[in-house]
């Protein structure tokens, strides 16, 4: 396809109106063409303004409170995050169950102190982790190693719309590389759920808020982990190191 024809697809792409092969071919072209990238970005600003054409419905006042309340619940203040990484790290946790008790005690004893902010963030992390692991609506997948020892468990909490990932005995990815978690569904391209790395002990604990690119669990069959270049890949570039099938916890 000539350069000119590619540019002609930029508008449809910006509108989300390219599908199937046309879309993936255009995406592949975008990776190597700054002109088309700039054109897509420019047209995205145009299409974004179409939002103002939607009929002037006024949201109920309670919606603002809901947005703020959910923000308070979901993301701890001052949580350290790796630049560019779509996942948030959870400090080391010995055992989630035991923590419930410890958390209550610490909360009472320490919150008044100068470390209140840090502690509040840690507590929120733990609350967030525990909340993600518990409840009847939680689904779980265990990922076994393919020819190695590492393993991982991924919890999907439908109500909170988040994944909690625990990886064990997975050697830290070398510099310039990262692990990437994939949602796999039949007849669909793997959807990235985010990137992560393990610590010196080969362990990782993280919470991944669900992204719109990850399909509903109803369509989700398997979960897999690959090692990719830093920043992650659009699609897996190697055979998964870990793979598992979703099961219900009930």
């Amino acid at each position: 396809m000539s350069e000119h024809s590619w540019l002609e697809s930029a508008g449809a792409y910006a509108l989300g109106a390219l599908a199937g092969e046309e879309r993936s071919e255009f995406q592949a072209h975008l990776a190597s063409c700054a002109t088309c990238r700039a054109e897509v970005q420019s047209l995205r600003e145009v299409t974004a303004l179409l939002a103002y054409a939607a009929p002037g419905e006024v949201p109920p006042p309670a919606l603002r409170d809901r947005v703020l309340a959910e923000a308070r619940r979901v993301r701890p203040i001052g949580a350290a995050r790796r630049p560019g990484a779509p996942v948030r790290w959870i400090p080391w946790l010995a055992a989630a169950a035991a923590l419930v008790i410890a958390v209550g005690a610490e909360r009472r004893a320490r919150l008044a102190g100068a470390r209140a902010d840090t502690l509040a963030a840690q507590l929120a992390d733990r609350d967030s982790l525990i909340a993600g692991l518990t409840g009847p609506e939680v689904h779980v997948v265990s990922l076994a190693g393919t020819g190695r020892d590492p393993s991982a468990r991924v919890f999907w909490n439908h109500r909170l719309q988040r994944f909690v990932v625990m990886a064990f005995d997975l050697p830290a990815a070398p510099s310039g590389r990262t692990y990437q978690l994939w949602a796999l569904a039949k007849d669909k391209a793997p959807a990235s759920m985010g990137t992560f790395n393990t610590n010196a002990h080969g362990q990782a604990y993280l919470v991944i808020p669900v992204d719109s690119s990850v399909i509903q669990l109803g369509f989700l069959d398997k979960c897999a982990v690959t090692q990719e270049p830093a920043g992650g890949s659009p699609q897996p570039t190697e055979t998964p190191r870990l793979v598992g099938t979703w099961v219900h916890t009930d």
């Binding site: 947005v67 959910e70 923000a71 993301r75």
Partner: peptide, 14 residues
């Protein structure tokens, strides 16, 4: 629509 908006701002926040 309310659910969508709550999700959207939640995602932007995170």
């Amino acid at each position: 629509a309310e659910e969508v908006v709550a999700d959207v701002f939640g995602q932007m926040w995170r």
